[in-house]
Amino acid sequence: MSAVMVKDLNVWFGVGADRSYAVRDVTFDVADGESFGLVGESGSGKSTILRAIAGLVPTWSGDMTVAGETLGPKRSKSFYSKVQMVFQDPYASLHPRQTVDRVLSEAMGLHGVQNINTRIGKLLDDVGLGAGFRFRYPHQLSGGQRQRVAIARSLACNPSILLLDEPTSALDVSVQAEILNLLVDLRREHKLTYIMVSHDLGVVGHLCERIGVMREGRFEEVLTVEDMRRSKAESPYTQHLLESSINSVR
């Protein structure tokens, strides 16, 4: 069964003559337990797809089915216990006045989780933060630690699907490695499905099996990471992206 099915998705901003499309006629499936990557340059609409799935953009048309639930204009409560999102900037995704403990216990409270106290301890261990971090405020944490807290928050309700919006692009490479490893481990442990957005082909290649290459709101092509590694991309645009990303590494 597919975890996520998206068919003919269009997303636009603005009204009337100002209407501009960020995503156009995008169709893709993500299987249960699969990790699907979306790559493209800034403004290609890759993050907008995630936001549309999560219900943060109200102006869309098309069909979306997530975990067996067909999505309408409003998301149900049960949707949020199945799908969670990790944001790009860990400095902006935590409430500046709330301790780690408050963030996690509120998320659990909203989902009716029992034994909140023990669960928080376990969750912090899961994401590689000790109990010592529990009562800290965001400004007492480094970027990587904040991102771990954000990941912990998204796992608070035991979701099956995680939407990852450039989760490591604001971090140092060494910290990026830690977070990517954590995401690999969590996926294995909790049997998660990922949809990950990134501009970095190396990162997507590390975490995903299949990749959708986006350009100006449309899918240029969808290919497996294996094909990408062997440079078997069909579209010249993907080739160009591949080359420049390999050039910048070597």
């Binding site: 944001f87 790009q88 900037d89 509120e106 909203l110 954000a150 998204s154």
Partner: peptide, 21 residues
């Protein structure tokens, strides 16, 4: 901001978001 989006994704209603966040 992202932290309001995040709490919305946890299923929090407008009343809670306004008063607590």
């Amino acid at each position: 901001s992202d932290y309001i989006h995040a709490i919305k994704l946890q299923g929090a209603g407008p009343f809670r978001i306004v008063t607590k966040h």
